[in-house]
């Protein structure tokens, strides 16, 4: 008798398990939510391309999620994904990468992709630190925190990345934490379904290289704090900067229809091909 097989194993590259995430890491939770979201949507992973960069969370799809996968250079997954999506608009193209990758070194690609409103789903796992390299300050690290490259405390304010992406023009933007797994799962499904640029900022934990410097030794410590810090966007609206200090605003930040980049590009191509056919009297 064969061993019972988990319903999600079809979405995971079983041959390279066990995974390399540290104990208490949030990446496993994100992989869990993502595979459930994909299964729930009824997507065939053969019709998906996952693109990621360099960093711990880039390992969520690369190599653990079983689809065509492009594990790119640091910070560039959105640029690579742009080429894939233009060629194959029929495929579901998802970028999963970290805050250092997407908002640090690759920040320029993020805002331009949002501006273009290209039909990609970008799930940015924000652990507020450069974890893979051992805990250096990130553009998302709160001010005042001690890291290996801010040993006398961080003097920079962090990016609120989801808000930045709303301002840049994305179709769908949300923020959740690894504590809010079910809303995150549903939000991932909505992001994939929404035609246009979709972005979810997933606040996640790195007990190993961030938590131990701020007194949160375990994944559970982080989840408790996320639960306390979380504030629904509906409640946060109208509150002052002071009141929102140290809070994590969660929920859907925007969801709107806008012309989508790849469709518009292909419309131009269709029009030009048709025009040419007319000019050449059908000879083309």
């Amino acid at each position: 008798m064969s061993e019972p097989r988990h319903r999600l194993m079809d979405f995971v590259r079983e041959e390279i398990m066990p995974h390399r995430f540290c104990s208490g890491c949030g990446c496993g939770t994100v992989l869990n939510a993502f595979t459930n979201a994909v299964e729930g949507l009824g997507l065939d992973s053969a019709e998906m391309v996952c693109v990621s960069g360099i960093g711990c969370s880039s390992w969520i799809p690369s190599p653990y999620f079983r689809a065509d996968t492009l594990h790119t250079t640091h910070g560039r997954p959105i640029a690579f994904a742009t080429g894939v999506k233009i060629l194959r608009p029929d495929l579901t193209v998802v970028v999963i990468a970290g805050d250092g990758d997407v908002a640090g070194i690759g920040g320029n690609h993020l805002i331009h992709a949002a501006r273009r409103n290209i039909d990609l789903s970008v799930f940015m796992v924000n652990n507020m630190i450069y974890g893979m390299t051992g805990g250096q300050v990130a553009p998302t690290t709160p001010a005042g925190v001690v890291t290996t490259t801010t040993p006398h405390s961080n003097v920079e304010p962090p990016f609120r990345v989801a808000d930045l992406v709303v301002a840049a023009g994305a179709s769908y933007v949300a923020r959740w934490t690894t504590y809010h797994v079910f809303p995150l799962l549903e939000s991932m499904q909505n992001a994939i379904k929404r035609k246009g640029f979709s972005f979810i900022e997933i606040m996640s934990q790195c007990p190993e290289n961030y938590g131990r410097r701020i007194g949160l030794r375990t994944g559970i410590d982080f989840l408790k704090q996320f639960k306390e810090q979380a504030l629904r966007v509906e409640k946060a609206n109208g509150m002052s900067e002071e009141e929102l200090k140290d809070r994590i605003v969660i929920g859907k930040l925007c969801d709107k229809e806008r012309p989508e980049y790849v469709s518009e590009l292909h419309r131009i191509t269709r029009e030009q091909v048709d025009k040419l056919k007319k000019e050449m009297g059908g000879a083309a």
Binding site: V49, V51, D68, L70, T72, T73, R76, A79, F80, A81, T82, G83, V84, K85, I86, L87, R88, L91, N108, H109, H112
Partner: peptide, 13 residues
């Protein structure tokens, strides 16, 4: 940087 990224992605597609 993005230009080369995009042509690599497109080539693989």
């Amino acid at each position: 940087i993005a230009s080369v990224g995009a042509i690599i992605g497109a080539s693989r597609a």
